[in-house]
Design a protein around this nucleic acid. Structure first.
Lengths: 189, 189, 189, 189
DNA sequence: TATGAATGAGAATTCATTCAT
DNA sequence: TATGAATGAATTCTCATTCAT
């Protein structure tokens, strides 16, 4: 049922999704839904959190598995793009389905956005400390990077041949991030 | 009534806004709404288009009024940030209220996003032609820039002291954009 | 405006006709309608009565202009069919548009039906008195005749070539009425 | 709920009947209505068809159960009058409630009227073939008979003592039909 | 006389939620 | 655990009617 819910929410958005949509897709009765979840909102928030955790952890692991900034950037982008290709519903749910809907979600969204920012801010801070990137408002840069990448990922989801353009996207965006952070490696300081 | 509608839509999003919300805010009767607009969706799409045109034209004028790439970047950012400070509802409506709602809006949103991308892509192409920025996937860069800036603008809207931080945001983001496009001026090629 | 009203009411029926339909067809403002008529219902009842009077008087004159029963029958049918051909809206209004709608009309309808019955009952009574037709429940016969003729007239209205079949209908129905009343002339008593 | 619906529709007509009328008469909630039927129109059309089928089958069986034309006429009239006495709502629904309302019903009404005409036309054709009635436009006669009988039946419904006058109506109308078709039996050819 | 912007009661319909089984 | 018939508050939209100009 959770599988169905994620997919349907991702496809139609929170408001346009009815409980009946979900349970009929999952082939259970409406009562069954309310046996497991108190209401529609709770389910959505739950799914959002779970999905957000999955994405954040995946990206964080990508960061942790590398040591140099450029490698971290590339690893994060590869992970994110990979999820967009293989689990588009996850991305859709996080970036689209929950925008401007239930008030209870606002805080969860803020937490998710903040964690996403931290994914970028921490490696960036470290790179700044080591003088691999110039002084800058590191938080602002990190916020901007999350927006930049999400937008590109959303663009990918709209394309039919997502899997084929994935590598190009990773390459282009890796360069974008390194340029945007002013990483000296690229400019050859 | 249009004023009310923009503000309420911006505050609560399309779905959560009821006709009653709008008319009671505008202090008119429900019938009055339907005297001027055929339905809720038409009104929203109309407001979205009008608002989108306003934003796009303002940003385009900012581009046209300058000749050098860095000046164009700064002018666009100043315009955008200015709108965010003085007309936050406009930004909220365009970036949040219409996400994932009515099908009729999807196309309008796509058109708006595309125009926003063009705002950046055209100056960037020109700069690339003149060798002021390195070779790059200029469309991808432009898409990423729109995402980056929107995200930062949205962050601004969440702050109480929007007007005070506006200048800093413009400065930081100008640098971000110049770095992200690889503009040589800043790095002193 | 009355012209428009009759036509529109006849076309769409009472409920489906809006004041706006009528006034826009008559090219006047809504306010003008309410200057002349207190409300929709009053207009309809007024039109119904006027139209009913016109039909009844026309048919009554047809009766009065002839002396023998068969001639009276034929004259009434010719008049009725003629109205159906040249003023179909009149017939539509009386037989269809006002069925099962406003309570205030029920009485008017009853009066109209009764007059229609009298159109047939009076000549029939006279013919019975003179032994031109057999003894019968003359009222029942008259009621049945009105139903029979209305049904045939309604059938005519549905045909495209109303004017061409009109004569045949008059002939067939004249025979029908003479048979149905048991008029001896036809059977040659 | 179906019982309620038929009665209320019959009493007030399609347009004047609200869903609330039906459900409050049936003592269920509005949602219950929409659980069983997609909308008001569908329900009405459904009831109309079902009711029409019932009436047509009943009348057809009356025809089939007799062999001579006069007996067939009497049997049909007895059946029809009987339904009018015991199920007045059925007749009201078919003859009044659905006149000039929903477009979707127009076709169903036409089909019903045609079947009603056939009820009379078939026995009449047979009688004509056997020279029991004179040559005539048999279709026109059949159409007229349906109108005549419906009108008389509607007159019955308006009377309080329906059950007491029923037999008289059957007798009078049997004679009417036999006369109207020119059946020789009555005139003693 | 004539206008038409404004009104708001009322109708159809949706859908999250409940609860007896 | 699981069901699904039943509920009714809430929403969109219509349209007869009013009234200031």
């Amino acid at each position: 049922m959770l599988q169905s819910a994620v997919r349907i929410f991702a496809e139609r958005g929170y408001q346009a999704t009815t409980i009946r949509d979900i349970v009929s897709d999952a082939d259970v009765a409406i009562g069954t839904f309310y046996f497991y979840f108190p209401d529609k909102e709770t389910l959505f928030v739950h799914l959002y959190e779970e999905t957000a955790d999955f994405l954040i952890q995946t990206l964080q692991q990508a960061v942790n598995s590398r040591s140099s900034f450029p490698q971290q950037v590339k690893a994060v982008l590869q992970s994110y793009v990979s999820i967009a290709v293989f689990e588009p519903a996850v991305v859709e749910l996080l970036l689209v389905a929950g925008v401007g809907t239930v008030p209870a979600l606002a805080e969860k969204r803020a937490v998710f956005r903040e964690k996403l920012v931290q994914i970028w801010q921490r490696p960036l801070s470290e790179a700044m400390d080591r003088n691999f990137v110039p002084l800058q408002n590191e938080r602002q840069t990190a916020v901007a990077l999350t927006g930049a990448i999400d937008q590109v990922i959303l663009g990918m989801l709209a394309e039919a041949d997502r899997d084929e353009i994935a590598d190009g996207v990773v390459q282009d965006m890796t360069r974008f991030v390194l340029r945007a952070t002013g990483h000296y490696g690229e400019q050859g300081k």
